[in-house]
């Protein structure tokens, strides 16, 4: 892929990379930061970081894993940013309101919205494993490599996340059955 970089015009090469990883980055960012505006910020930050670091990838899987890893890193930076900490402290429930209702995607059905909103209530570490496992179809070991955690930790988080999600969904009146073979 590095040689491809040399051969192609840099601008179109970047565009290809962005388009190739666009949805993966955005969905993961949205799953972690909870509002569209914040996901927009994370999205741009991830691709700018790509340009700054210009990493060389061995394969398409390596490239995708790098983008998922960097998206998680950017989200963590976002959570610990002074602005976010201040916002969390000051706004509290208001942030939750921002994360719901008007923030939803118009294509999503009521059932989809309920699921997305419920997942948002999980702690960040659970949202990461849930998204990578159920959306990206990654194994526990692959999630461990991306989140820099032991497979046993991922397994535990997934189990706890499922338990918590199931309970939340029951409270919300959903009829989902959160199951899965790890």
């Amino acid at each position: 892929m590095k040689s491809m970089h040399r051969e192609k015009d840099t601008a179109s090469f970047y565009e290809e990379v962005i388009r190739r990883n666009s949805e993966t980055v955005y969905r993961l960012a949205y799953a972690l930061v909870r509002t569209r505006a914040d996901a927009d910020d994370i999205y741009q930050e991830v691709f700018l970081r790509y340009v700054r670091k210009t990493p060389a990838f061995d394969s398409a899987e390596h490239e995708k894993a790098w983008f998922m890893r960097v998206t998680i890193n950017c989200c963590r930076n976002f959570w610990r940013s002074p602005w976010m900490q201040r916002r969390s402290a000051l706004e509290g429930d208001a942030l939750e309101r921002e994360a719901s209702g008007a923030d939803m995607f118009c294509e999503a059905s009521d059932e989809d919205q309920l699921l997305i909103e419920t997942v948002k209530q999980l702690p960040e570490k659970y949202r990461v494993v849930i998204h990578l496992f159920y959306y990206e179809d990654l194994s526990v070991e692959e999630i461990g490599r991306i989140t820099k955690s032991k497979a046993s930790t991922v397994r535990t988080r997934l189990t706890r996340a499922r338990r918590e999600l199931k309970s939340l969904l029951q409270q919300e009146g959903g009829d989902f059955h959160v199951q899965g073979q790890i």
Binding site: E15, I18, E23, D40, A108, V119, Y135, H177
Partner: peptide, 27 residues
Amino acid sequence: FRDRYKNAYDTITPPPELVSDTICKVQ
């Protein structure tokens, strides 16, 4: 659950203007 989760998150895509704006900034 996996299918339900995927269906729900399939509706989440970056706005086209965000993609084009990012491409412009990067280029």
